[in-house]
Design a protein around this nucleic acid. Sequence first.
DNA 1: GCTGTTTCGTTCGTCTATCAAAGTAAGTGG
DNA 2: CCACTTACTTTGATAGACGAACGAAACAGC
Lengths: 162, 162
Amino acid sequence: MDRTDQSLIALRRILRSTELYTRDLASAAGLTPAQLRVLQIVSGKGGTATPKELSKQMGVSQATVTALVDKLVARGHVARERSDVDRRQTNVNITARGRAAVAEAPDALQQRYVKAFEALEGWEQMMLVAALERVAGMLDARDLDAAPVLAIGDIGSSSVPH
Amino acid sequence: MDRTDQSLIALRRILRSTELYTRDLASAAGLTPAQLRVLQIVSGKGGTATPKELSKQMGVSQATVTALVDKLVARGHVARERSDVDRRQTNVNITARGRAAVAEAPDALQQRYVKAFEALEGWEQMMLVAALERVAGMLDARDLDAAPVLAIGDIGSSSVPH
DNA sequence: GCTGTTTCGTTCGTCTATCAAAGTAAGTGG
DNA sequence: CCACTTACTTTGATAGACGAACGAAACAGC
């Protein structure tokens, strides 16, 4: 087996672990994975976001975002509010309850990862960061012209410094 | 920002790129992501697998596998066959058409990644493989049966402590 | 042999995620 | 004020996912 295959297998293991884990995580928090993602994004943007932003960030249609926000509103995790600056826009604001749900999400996978990561030597941490960023850059759709789906959203412009 | 955050951000970028891409890939192949995954697994196991194996490998219930296989059967990508050794079991066999679908899946992300990876110097490839496997190991506490891999080696530099 | 238990797969009912298309409401530029 | 665009929602459809209940086959233990 060559190194390319090895790297692909390792990537698939990473993907699989996180995918399986996301389901556990969300269900433990009483939310579905997609709903949790919405909450996390809203929370990460300082507690408010528009459906448009969510749609872009998540790579799904606005119709889907509407449905997800409906559910979160029904459960009291977020509240809708008409924007004053542009009344076509709706602000999706996280509630105290929503914040609590995000905070209390028993993020065992991430905790395990963080713990393992922080147990490493400094030079190993740097090596891993460099490698992960390298791989992320290799996968990033930024330069692809012919992939409309991937062109959705400003990948990284909000959260990934370069 | 500390190195832990940097590594988490890079990981999320990797996850996001692949997740968005999977949808594009599957739709171009005329399949849904879940259906394509079934086909890929069956194909990877030599052309036949049981629902139980698929369920385990994919991390979904058997009921879900049944539904997915139903769809693939309807489209002629796989065929069911009763096992002779244990007649409770059903073998899901890939058809020529199924193989073609897997082979023709325009796996642009992977191709793009492979191309970038293979353009790297040998030592860089080794570094990335070591790093990815390291991360996979940190995330992947349970099932090791998913991939035919392998204890993480050190990368040739003699002093990787653990 | 029998009888109870486990395993494998399926069926059924239900919920969520998702989209495309059509609709509504609000801003923008003649 | 009219046409156009933008932001969001509604509607109707399909797919994915689960748990519960089920039949069939294998496997116990006598």
